[in-house]
């Protein structure tokens, strides 16, 4: 359904081009959940914004295609993109507290997407289109119920500050679902919430995936979340995808030294070790990236070849791909 091919984008800054997304290939089939994991600033969220065409100034797409249902989103006009946003592709953001507009009632914010995409435009009658408004309201209340907001009839009239963080995220999911999107982009939807709420929200998204059949791209830096929830995982490092495959392939048999390092750095209750094992070094400066392997300075298995040229994606079998010479 969605296929990103060779996508590269950069921010033009005074220090030169900052390559936030570099030659990314991704594909999501209908009803599939794709996880993108990586550290902060590795280009996960920007990749999502690219799909919607909402990369903030001074970001620029350098090359690539984003094929959605057979059409390249990068070639669409502004008007065509607006028709897709919120209708075919919806997005859920990281911080629910700042994502709902503080001056509008929750119900109105859920209703808005339906109105602009003309979900009930055939419903006629009443003064000031009241029949259509009622239809929209009924659907909004239904959605609020579905995402687990208690007493939705009353909550419909609340303002965002009257909701808790978890409830706000549920409301945002209701906004995302309002036009029955085919693809849901979730940008760390649980990061800002506490752990019990995280589990509830993830369960809700799983239900949505199963019941609505919506494809989901879940961006997260929580490997546990990704392992539990996703069918496929892509690991991103410094704007590139370094490893991609089915969840069990990536989690049970990580190939790339970075993925291995990430998995080693997760604290485990079962292990007797006192300390978790961090990956040495820090994330590279994206403005100074060259074509060579960006993980080279932090990699224990690095050798000269890694510096010589751009590392291609190697097939490690059964669709499991790795950007590392160890498997070439």
């Amino acid at each position: 359904m969605l296929e990103i091919k060779n996508l590269a984008m950069a921010f033009e800054t005074e220090r030169g081009l900052v390559r936030a997304v570099n030659k990314v290939d991704l594909s999501v089939a209908e009803g599939e959940v794709m996880g993108i994991v990586g550290e902060s600033g590795c280009g996960k969220s920007v990749t999502l914004l690219n799909i919607l065409g909402l990369v903030p100034h001074p970001g620029k797409v350098l090359s690539g295609e984003i094929m959605f249902q057979g059409e390249d989103l990068l070639k669409k006009s502004k008007k065509e993109m607006r028709d897709i946003r919120g209708k075919d592709i919806a997005m859920i953001f990281q911080d629910p507290m700042t994502t709902l507009n503080p001056v509008f009632r929750i119900g109105e914010q859920i209703r808005e997407s339906m109105r602009i995409h003309g979900l009930f435009k055939d419903v006629k009658g009443g003064f000031f289109k009241s029949a259509r408004k009622h239809a929209e309201k009924d659907r909004a209340v239904e959605l609020m119920e579905e995402v687990g907001i208690p007493s939705p009839e009353t909550r419909y009239h609340n303002f965002p500050h009257e909701f808790s963080g978890g409830m706000q995220q549920r409301a945002l999911i209701a906004i995302g679902l309002s036009c029955k999107p085919k693809l849901l982009l979730a940008d760390e939807p649980t990061t800002a919430l506490d752990v019990t709420i995280q589990a509830q929200i993830l369960a809700l998204m799983q239900k949505i995936n199963q019941e609505h059949g919506a494809g989901i791209i879940l961006v997260t830096h929580d490997l546990g979340v990704a392992a539990e929830f996703c069918h496929k995982i892509a690991v991103m490092y410094a704007g590139r995808i370094v490893e991609q495959g089915r969840t069990e392939q990536v989690m049970d048999n990580p190939h790339h030294p970075y993925t291995q390092g990430l998995l080693r750095s997760i604290p485990k209750m079962s292990s007797k070790k006192d300390r978790i094992e961090p990956i040495p070094g820090g994330v590279p400066d994206l403005a100074e990236l060259k074509e060579e392997c960006a993980f080279y300075p932090r990699c224990a298995k690095a050798h000269d070849k890694c510096l010589s040229q751009e590392v291609p994606m190697f097939d490690a079998g059964e669709g499991h791909t790795v950007r590392c010479y160890l498997y070439g």
Binding site: I84, K87, A90, M91, T99, N101, P102, E112, L172, I175
Partner: peptide, 14 residues
């Protein structure tokens, strides 16, 4: 710069 402005755009508003 606020997130709710990005959300408004992501909804498909003009």
């Amino acid at each position: 710069r606020q997130d709710y402005v990005t959300l408004a755009r992501a909804k498909g508003l003009r």
